[in-house]
């Protein structure tokens, strides 16, 4: 199993931008892995628990992304690969090329991965394409948006959301690429021994070749904020009659 993750800022209640309008201000927040990818990591660990084998986590990002790799090692991923960049943003085409190149390199050493797992889209850029581009580069089938996964006789059986509600079932012969959505599983929390083990592991560093992208960020903009103030209906249970008035005004209560 190979699982690819992306380091993204942790966002709380309000996002602010850096003065140069290039990044989200992270002075008062931390970093994390995109939610879909947290589930991809959990998925990789569960498959290895059920079927044997090993799992590897890979990210393309700055040296500090080691933190996200160690988070994955702490929940049971076996080893980690960092495609180290200077921290500037890579566009989805060059990101996919670098990952496909790294996968080819790893596979030359240790044989093919049965599954490459990605998040369906990253929390920050939501480009919706890196996993699919990697699948094309490697000539493998791809299933996006997996919300349930079972491996049967060399086939990945995937359930995903159908456009008009309900589910659709798709299959992909292994080796394959899957992009995962949150909800496919409930990620575990790392144990203390897991954290300690993760700290000691060596991270395999590779310098990716930057091939150049064709989509460039000019600047970030925050959409205009609304101006109206909320009406305070009251404090505690005494506000209940006011709430009923509101519900009545909306036709929800007679």
């Amino acid at each position: 199993m190979l699982v690819c993750v992306k380091r993204v800022p942790t966002t709380g209640g309000k996002i602010t931008l850096t003065p140069d309008e290039q990044e989200i201000d992270t002075r008062f927040s931390g970093w994390t892995v995109s939610p879909h990818e947290e589930c991809a990591v959990e998925g990789a660990v569960r498959i290895v628990e059920a079927h044997g084998g090993t799992s590897t986590v890979l990210t393309l990002g700055p040296a500090a992304a080691e933190e996200q790799l160690r988070d994955a090692l702490a929940v049971g991923v076996n080893d980690a690969v960092l495609l180290e960049t200077d921290g500037s943003e890579w566009d989805p085409e060059e990101t996919a090329r670098a990952i496909a190149g790294a996968v080819a390199g790893l596979e030359a050493d240790r044989g093919p991965f049965d599954l490459l797992l990605f998040g369906n889209e990253a929390a920050d850029t939501a480009d919706h394409q890196v996993g699919i581009r990697v699948a094309h580069a490697l000539g493998r089938p791809c299933v996006a948006g997996a919300k349930a996964l079972e491996l049967r006789d060399g086939t990945a059986v995937v359930r995903r959301e159908a456009p008009d509600g309900g589910w659709e079932v798709v299959e992909a012969p292994l080796p394959a690429v899957l992009t995962v959505k949150e909800g496919i599983n409930l990620p575990r929390y790392p144990s203390v021994p897991g954290r300690i083990r993760a700290k000691k592991k060596e991270i395999h560093r590779v310098a990716p070749e930057r091939t150049g992208g064709r989509v460039r960020k000019r600047r970030l903009v925050l959409p205009p904020e609304r101006k109206e103030q909320a009406e305070i209906l009251g404090h505690g249970p005494e506000a209940a009659p006011k709430v009923v008035e509101v519900l009545r005004s909306l036709g929800l209560v007679r």
Partner: peptide
């Protein structure tokens, strides 16, 4: 970006 919480002006 970020589900529409942030907008990006980009060139392609």
């Amino acid at each position: 970006r970020w589900g529409g919480t942030v907008l990006e002006e980009a060139e392609a």
